[in-house]
Computed example of a mutant assay.
Amino acid sequence: MELAGTPQDPGPDLSELLGHVARGDQEAFARVYECVAGPVLGLVRSILRDPAQSEEVAQEVLVEVWRCAARYQQDRGSAMSWVMTLAHRRAVDRVRSAQASSDREQRAALLDRTPAYDEVTEQVEARLEREQVRRCMRGLTEVQHQSMTLAYYRGLTYREVAELLSLPLGTVKTRLRDGLIRLRDCLGVNA
């Protein structure tokens, strides 16, 4: 089929050309490209304002016309309206994508400037907790204090504590349990 028109025979219209493009006709696509490239770029540029991005989006629209020409339905509007709708949607999508990216970068920048925690407050709270534990440890009996220190500060096992203090294992376990109960009550921890 010859697509080149003459002044007497203008050739197929854009709708017919899209039908040929849908069947993979590259010559028909070249004609469609000639008809729509200028208006597509103009519309996209009016939305994006950035010439480089406008050219990129216009190219994406024309590739989409090539790939999706079969989706054009003549009874739903003119071929030029269909192409311009594709262009408008793609340009708006680019604007939204750029805005979302900018918003993410701003949130990330705010998170970078926000300290994860207040170091001074953390240090003061830790110091107060250590002092409260020391005060409560002073309230234990000497044997409880020795057992707790060996087991929890030096990391000895109950058996090692029993051997070091020359006490039966059961006695050490009882003293540790009683010491933990007294610490819990002193620190105000709920069981």
Rank of each mutant, 00 (worst) to 15 (best):
E142A: 02
E142M: 01
E142H: 01
V143N: 02
V143Q: 04
V143T: 06
V143G: 02
V143M: 05
Q144K: 02
Q144F: 01
Q144H: 03
Q144R: 02
H145S: 09
H145C: 04
H145L: 07
Q146Y: 00
Q146D: 11
Q146M: 12
Q146W: 02
Q146P: 00
S147D: 04
S147T: 07
S147P: 03
S147L: 05
M148Q: 03
M148S: 01
M148T: 01
T149M: 14
T149Q: 09
T149D: 07
L150E: 09
L150I: 08
L150A: 13
A151E: 08
Y152S: 06
Y152N: 09
Y152V: 02
Y152H: 11
Y152Q: 10
Y152T: 08
Y152C: 08
Y153S: 11
Y153M: 11
Y153N: 09
Y153A: 13
Y153F: 13
Y153G: 10
R154P: 04
R154K: 14
R154I: 07
G155Y: 07
G155L: 11
G155W: 06
L156W: 14
L156F: 13
L156A: 09
T157H: 05
T157V: 04
T157R: 05
T157W: 04
Y158D: 10
Y158S: 10
Y158Q: 14
R159P: 00
R159E: 15
R159I: 04
R159Y: 01
R159S: 13
E160A: 13
E160V: 00
E160P: 00
E160S: 07
V161S: 10
V161M: 09
V161C: 12
V161A: 08
A162I: 13
A162L: 12
A162P: 10
A162K: 11
A162V: 14
A162E: 12
A162F: 06
E163P: 00
E163K: 05
E163R: 10
L164W: 00
L164K: 06
L164N: 04
L164A: 09
L165D: 10
L165K: 05
L165M: 15
L165A: 11
L165R: 12
S166N: 14
S166C: 13
S166A: 15
S166Y: 01
S166T: 12
S166M: 12
S166K: 09
L167H: 06
L167I: 10
L167S: 07
L167V: 09
L167Y: 00
P168Q: 15
P168H: 13
L169Q: 15
G170W: 06
G170Y: 03
G170R: 03
G170L: 09
G170I: 05
T171Y: 10
T171E: 15
T171S: 14
T171G: 03
V172N: 09
V172F: 04
V172M: 08
K173C: 11
K173F: 04
K173D: 11
K173A: 13
K173Y: 06
K173P: 00
K173E: 15
K173T: 11
T174W: 01
T174C: 02
T174K: 02
T174I: 03
T174S: 05
R175D: 07
R175T: 03
R175L: 07
L176N: 05
L176Y: 01
L176A: 03
R177N: 08
